[in-house]
Design a protein around this nucleic acid. Structure first.
Length: 316
DNA sequence: AATACTACCTGCGTGC
DNA sequence: TGCACGCAGGTAGTAT
């Protein structure tokens, strides 16, 4: 679920909560979350590792440990939850309430859990030497973790192919323009694939396109110079404002401290179907673009013909 | 190579 | 009430 602003907010919370702590034990309850190495090595290698720093690249979190980089992607529903100490009564209640006896026996014993509450959506437990615990929760189980040699997170497949961070320095107009003009794709799915710039997801791409007054289905290579320039600034601005607001909570997102974001109060189009466009009053429409729900203003964001450059057939 | 579609999962709201 | 279906802050793998 989270896009860059939510991941950055999680990173800040986690930094407060677990930097400086040393891992005493790791339990993996849903093995598919661990991409590499195999689960037994993953758990074993983490014992004794200290968390020195937590950074972010695009929507990826990187835990910098004594001897490893731990890469974590939350995908749609991943969350971290921190417990400063065990609470055995709660644990017993939640276990019996949420897990079948079969599941419980298959996965672990109550003793192993050390008195921490676990639900059927709890998939990875990091026990720290000071008695606290960090849990990874994920209702849809799409999130992934990989434990890599120290200093190699940047070579990890998903991270290596990311475009620049959405800052004025890294995300240059020149490179953005070159990338856009090479693609016939609709602008929205092109921005979602993280190659030209990283960090946008379904909420912020709709917001940025609205801010730049560009139709989500406008072919990338037909954008005018003015539109490209506006779009770049809109992307940088929207993501920056959303980080400052602690992200957007529409349905389920909470940061590592269990708090909701505030950017939903500033949304202009996402989840605003039927409400008046804040610029012109036209009701916001919802359509489907590249299988994703897409919100836009049909008056402010018009599809248009080419940009004056040579346009190949098919662009409209 | 570039683009499009599907799989991966679970829960929730809607309409019959 | 039950059930089928569509939808959800994402990405990777597989077709075309």
């Amino acid at each position: 679920m989270p896009e860059l602003p939510e991941v950055e907010t999680v990173r800040q919370g986690l930094t407060q909560l677990v930097v400086g702590k040393t891992i005493a034990k790791v339990l993996v309850l849903w093995p598919k979350i661990i991409e590499s190495p195999e689960v037994s090595a993953f758990s074993h290698n983490l014992v004794g590792q200290k968390i020195n720093e937590i950074s972010r690249r695009g929507k990826y979190l990187v835990f910098h440990l004594t001897d490893y980089d731990l890469v974590s992607h939350l995908r749609m529903e991943g969350k971290y939850e921190f417990f400063s100490e065990p609470s055995s009564e709660l644990a017993a209640e939640e276990i019996t309430g949420q897990l079948t006896v079969q599941e419980l026996q298959d996965a672990f014993t109550k003793d192993e859990l050390g008195g921490f509450p676990v639900t059927k959506h709890t998939h990875v437990l990091f026990f720290f030497t000071d008695g606290s615990q960090l849990q990874y929760h994920d209702v849809r189980k799409f999130g992934r973790m990989a434990l890599l040699p120290k200093g190699t997170a940047g070579d990890y497949k998903g991270i290596a192919r990311l475009g620049p961070e959405p800052t004025p320095e890294a995300f240059t107009l020149k490179e953005f323009k070159v990338g856009l003009l090479k693609s016939h794709k609709a602008i929205k799915p092109l921005l979602l694939d993280q190659h030209l710039v990283t960090g946008l997801g379904n909420i912020y791409v709709d917001e940025a396109l609205w801010q730049a007054k560009i139709h989500p289905e406008q072919p990338a290579n037909t954008l005018t110079d003015q539109e490209i320039s506006r779009l770049r600034l809109a992307i940088i601005d929207v993501l920056k404002r959303a980080v400052a607001a602690g992200g957007t909570t529409i349905r389920t997102y909470l940061n590592a401290l269990g708090e909701a974001g505030k950017f939903q109060l500033s949304l202009n189009v996402y989840s605003q179907t039927g409400k008046p466009c804040p610029r012109c009053g036209t009701p916001i429409e919802k359509i489907k673009v590249a299988q994703r729900g897409t919100h836009f203003c049909p008056t402010c964001q018009k599809l248009h013909q080419g940009n004056g450059r040579l346009v190949k057939k098919g662009a409209r």
